[in-house]
Nucleic acid binder design. Structure first.
Lengths: 181, 181
DNA sequence: ATTTAAACTTACTTACTAGTAAATAAAAAT
DNA sequence: ATTTTTATTTACTAGTAAGTAAGTTTAAAT
C-alpha cells in the first residue's frame, strides 16, 4: 500500500527547501518515484496546487510538533524550536519560509496566502511562549514579546541561509545570542 | 553615450532581488532595454556570468558605501547600515544575499564563490566596527563581536524577507532590538 | 576613405517546462 | 462478474529558456 500523494508532497517539500521553488520541475519528482510526470499532475494539476499543499503540510507538521511540547516549560519549548532548526542546518537545508519569501512576488495568490498564514501561525506561537515565559520570570529580555519573536524567528531563518553560503558555524553563535537573555 | 552593459547589470540586480535568480530571463532584461535577447548574451554569454557580475557590482557598491562612512562614529556606521536596509524594505525588495542563499545549490561555482566572498566581506566589516565600538565603550552587547555580527546581519536579512510575507512592520521591531544594546 | 573593432540583430537550435487529453491498468464497490 | 472509480501511462501541445552562428550596422582608428 503506497501513498504516492504523500510522497510527492514530501519530495516537493525537500526540493523547495534545498533548491528553491523555481528550480524544480514535476519531472524531478516523478523520476524519484519512478512514475511519469503526468501522474504528478493527476494529484496536483498545477504546480501552485502542489506548492500550496506543501505549505499546508508544513503548517500541520508545526501544529503537531508544538502541541507535543505544550506541557514543557516555556524555555524548553524555545530550545526545542531552536534545536528543530539545527537539524535543518545539519542537512544544509532551509525552512519553507526562507525558501519561498524571496520569490514571494512570483508565487500564485493561493501560495502567497498560505505562506502568510504560516508565518503568522509561527509568530503567534512564539509570541505566546515568549510572553508567558516572561511573565513567569523564565525569560528576561527587554523588548516586547512581539519584537523578540521577530528577532528569534529572523535569526533562525537567516542562520540557515547563511549556513549555506559560509563555512563558519553561524547557527551556534546565533543560538547562544537568542538564549543569552 | 549609452552604457548597455551597466544597465543590464542594474536590471538583473533588480530582477534577482525582487523575483529571484531562477525566475528571470534574458528576455525580461532585453525587453526593458528595447534590445534583443542575443545582445544580452553578447555582454554576458552565460547567465552565471551575469549573476557573478551582479554580485561583484554589489561588492563594489558596498565598499564605496562603507568607505564614505569611515570617519563616522561606530554607532552611526551601524545605524547607516540598518537604514540602508530600510530603504530596501520600503521597496519590498531583499538583499542579494537573501535572494541567492536559498538557491545556492543551483548556482554555478563562480557565483557560489563570489557570493561567499561577499558574505565574508560584509561580516568582517560588521565585526570590525562592532569590536572597535565595544572597545571604545559605544556598544555594550554581551556576545563576541563575531556572534553579534551574525545576529545583526541575520536579523536585517530576514527582516526584509518577512517584510514581503507579513503586513506587520518587522523591520522596525528588529531595528530597535539591534540598537537596544 | 578604408580598415578594424564593437555593438548589435536575425534567425536559429536544443532542451526543458507546465500542462492536457485520451487510453489503459488496477482496485474497489456493487 | 461487471461496473465504477482511482491511479497511472502514452503521447502530445504550446510556450519559454539558455545559448549560438552568422550577418549587419555603428563607431573608432588608421
Amino acid at each position: 500500500m503506497k501513498n504516492t500523494r504523500g510522497e510527492i508532497i514530501r519530495i516537493a517539500d525537500d526540493l523547495i527547501r534545498t533548491r528553491g521553488y523555481n528550480a524544480f520541475s514535476y519531472t524531478d519528482i516523478s523520476k524519484q518515484l519512478n512514475i511519469k510526470n503526468a501522474a504528478v499532475h493527476y494529484y496536483f494539476p498545477a504546480k501552485s496546487d502542489l506548492g500550496t499543499e506543501v505549505i499546508r503540510f508544513r503548517i500541520s507538521d508545526f501544529h503537531q510538533r508544538v502541541q507535543s511540547w505544550d506541557t514543557l516549560p516555556y524555555d524548553q519549548q524555545l530550545v526545542n524550536w531552536i534545536t528543530y532548526h539545527q537539524h535543518k542546518k545539519e542537512n544544509k537545508c532551509v525552512c519553507i519560509l526562507g525558501a519561498l519569501a524571496p520569490v514571494y512576488d512570483t508565487l500564485q495568490e493561493n501560495m502567497q496566502t498560505e505562506l502568510g498564514r504560516f508565518s503568522n501561525i509561527i509568530l503567534e506561537w512564539l509570541i505566546d511562549i515568549l510572553a508567558k515565559g516572561k511573565q513567569s520570570g523564565i525569560f528576561n529580555y527587554k523588548e516586547s514579546p512581539r519584537a523578540k519573536a521577530y528577532l528569534v524567528q529572523s535569526s533562525l531563518l537567516a542562520a540557515l541561509l547563511l549556513n549555506k553560503v559560509l563555512d563558519d558555524d553561524v547557527f551556534q553563535a546565533i543560538q547562544n545570542s537568542i538564549l543569552m537573555q
